[in-house]
């Protein structure tokens, strides 16, 4: 058995990451580069919010303190959000959005695959459902990496710039937090070393096909999993939490 608080924290890392990336993607609503991609990004946002809900609901039951999915999603302080820094990075432009998505999908596609065979049956169930979505997301984001990288000179430059800029937020993914170490030991979560290897393989092959260069720099930011975020998150939360903060305790 793994300690409940490890499981709870683990749910929050991924619930928060899903929620925050969903929030970012939904900012595109009505402003996509072409109607089909507007729809695709709305669809991604929708899948991620669905996933966030399943994870928060499970977290809420694990915590067993009467906090609902909405209280977990909307009424915590910034310090308590555990999402990956990558998820909160602003949309910037379509190249950044695609790159951010690709880096995340290349991780989740393997994590979810492993978790769908997890000893925790509830988690396995959620992972199994999410995996099917992520396979589609990964297809979308890796296809666009290749299209943009191997498209025009301008698109190549833009997506290379996004890769270079976002690179420093990718290392954090594989730096296990305490709860993740606990989960690994209990055999509920897979080894992050293995996940990291497989992520690098995916990234290498997609970047190569996209004619993009893998960044050389090795310095990596961290802090998301322990609640120390970039300056961007505060604004995102201010907007996202607005109704719950302005009108506490109501039904909508």
């Amino acid at each position: 058995m793994i300690p409940k608080d490890h499981l709870f924290d683990f749910m929050l890392i991924h619930a928060d990451t899903s929620l925050i990336i969903s929030q970012r993607l939904s900012e595109w609503c009505g402003h996509g580069p072409v109607l089909e991609q507007d729809m695709a990004m709305t669809n991604l946002a929708l899948d991620h919010i669905g996933r966030a809900r399943l994870l928060y609901q499970y977290a809420s039951e694990l915590e067993n303190a009467g906090r609902s999915e909405d209280e977990l999603a909307f009424l915590r302080d910034e310090l308590d959000y555990k999402n990956l820094l990558l998820a909160e990075y602003p949309n910037t432009d379509f190249a950044f959005t695609v790159t951010r998505q690709f880096f995340l999908d290349a991780f989740y596609i393997d994590l979810l695959d492993k978790l769908s065979g997890s000893a925790d049956s509830r988690l396995a169930h959620i992972a199994n459902k999410s995996l099917k979505e992520t396979q589609y997301h990964y297809k979308w984001s890796s296809d666009w990496m290749i299209r943009l990288g191997d498209g025009t000179e301008i698109s190549h430059e833009k997506v290379q710039n996004a890769v270079d800029r976002l690179w420093e937020y990718t290392g954090e993914i594989f730096q296990p937090a305490e709860c993740e170490l606990g989960m690994m030991e209990a055999g509920v979560a897979p080894s992050y070393e293995e996940l990291s290897d497989s992520w690098h393989q995916r990234v290498n092959s997609v970047l190569a096909e996209a004619t993009l260069k893998k960044p050389q720099s090795t310095w990596q930011q961290k802090g998301g999993k322990t609640g120390h975020h970039t300056e961007h998150l505060g604004y995102l939360l201010a907007e996202m939490q607005y109704m719950q903060r302005a009108y506490p305790g109501l039904d909508w």
Binding site: L19, L46, R53, D70, E239, M243, Q244, W252
Partner: peptide
């Protein structure tokens, strides 16, 4: 981005996706 809860946010997103 300011929907008051997760359920409403999901429903609104689904609606906007339909409109597209």
């Amino acid at each position: 981005t300011r929907a008051p809860n997760l359920k409403r946010k999901a429903i609104l997103l689904a609606k906007i996706q339909d409109e597209a």
